Amino acid sequence: MKLVALALVFLVFTGCSKTVRIASLQPAEIDRAAGAKRIAVYTFRHDTVGLTEKIETKAAAARVDGKPWFTVISRGDLSKILEELRLQESGLADEEQVVEAGKLLGATALITGSVTAADAEDSYYTEKRFECLDKKCKEYNIFDVSCMERSAVVSAHIRLVDIAKGEVLFADTLKRSRHWNRCFDSSTHIPTKGEALDLLANEIADHFIQRLTPHYTYHEVELLEEPDIDYSAEEKKLLKNALTFIEHGRYDKAEQLLGELLRSTGEQSYVAAYDLGVVKETKGELEAARSLYLLADRNCPEPNETIDAAIVRIQQSIRAKESALKQMNQ
């Protein structure tokens, strides 16, 4: 499967060093759920925050390398089957009945559960304020201002069931909470109680779907900018121009120049090897990047934190990519 290299993007200046933002493909956290790609989402019990719809929407929108990860069976079709089977007498069928309906629709997994908490409340307190009564503030006034703290919490017990085997692939309670503060002499906006609960329900849905889906994480990788051996004037120019091309997002030109620099130094420059490894990693060529980082390590006469971090990172990235590709091919 050909992956889209998402790791490109930009340079960030942190002090005197330049960094490149690199994407790393990570496997779905719940490996057992990797084959559950045709799913049905059944209405959560006590769902006053629209969590069912949020999970369904986010599952339908989930993409890996631009391709949909899930096929989502509509809840309308699921309800219709339940009605036809005369299993929906009270409006909420039990899980076994819903699994049977999902099986008839060709779903491989069922997502269901219940919202166990959805509460928002306000508490009040005061803060001291200081007000000058003259220009030199020789006279002043201290007074109290009324303030409010809005607290919200949403939690839900979510289950993912393998329809064919009847096995529970995932069962956990996910919870999100947050606090907002505002004093009445401030124009600071805080969400309404409904907006707060909606925000937290969205966070739960996002987190749950990400745990089921291969995804990219992003990190900043430092470049080496100073010659490590006795560079000629032309070799210094090659390094400088390569770094400029990286800054401009021209990884193709940077790769060409750094390759020329590495050859020119008889493959003895760890700076050239390392920076070329970063370019390869940015392009998603992880094995080539690992070889270059190991070459940089061999050429470096003493421990180098940047190179050490690159070797650890690339090994982790290769393992993560292998796991993600295995999931993607299921």
Rank of each mutant, 00 (worst) to 15 (best):
D144T: 09
T188H: 12
A201V: 05
E195Q: 05
P191N: 07
V161D: 12
S151K: 11
A152P: 00
T192E: 01
I158Q: 03
A152N: 03
N141I: 00
F170Q: 15
A196Q: 07
H157F: 04
Y140L: 04
E167D: 15
I158Y: 04
H157E: 06
I158S: 05
S177D: 06
H179L: 07
V161R: 12
T192L: 00
S146D: 09
L199R: 11
D198L: 10
K138T: 15
H189R: 15
M148H: 04
L197C: 08
L174H: 12
R176Q: 15
F143C: 05
S146V: 05
V145D: 12
M148K: 14
S146M: 13
S146Y: 10
A156H: 01
T192Q: 02
D144R: 13
T188M: 12
H157R: 10
E149T: 10
K165Y: 09
K138R: 15
L160G: 12
R176A: 15
S187P: 00
T188A: 15
G194S: 14
L197I: 13
K193C: 04
M148V: 11
H179Y: 05
R182K: 11
Y140E: 06
I142F: 09
L160Y: 08
G166R: 12
R159D: 04
D185T: 14
L200E: 04
L169G: 10
I190N: 08
S187M: 10
R178E: 02
F184K: 01
D198F: 10
V154C: 02
A171H: 13
F143L: 12
V154T: 02
L197Y: 10
K165R: 15
N141L: 07
T192D: 01
N181Y: 03
V153R: 01
I158F: 03
L169T: 08
R150G: 05
N141F: 01
I142E: 12
D198C: 11
H179G: 06
M148D: 06
A201I: 04
D162K: 02
S155T: 10
E149I: 04
E195Y: 01
N141R: 12
Y140V: 02
V145R: 14
R176G: 13
I142T: 13
T192M: 01
L174M: 15
R176F: 10
R176M: 12
P191L: 06
H179D: 08
L169E: 11
S146W: 09
D185I: 09
L200M: 09
R159V: 09
D172L: 11
V145W: 12
C147W: 02
E139P: 08
E167W: 11
I163E: 11
W180I: 07
D185N: 14
A164E: 14
V145E: 11
V154I: 06
S186V: 09
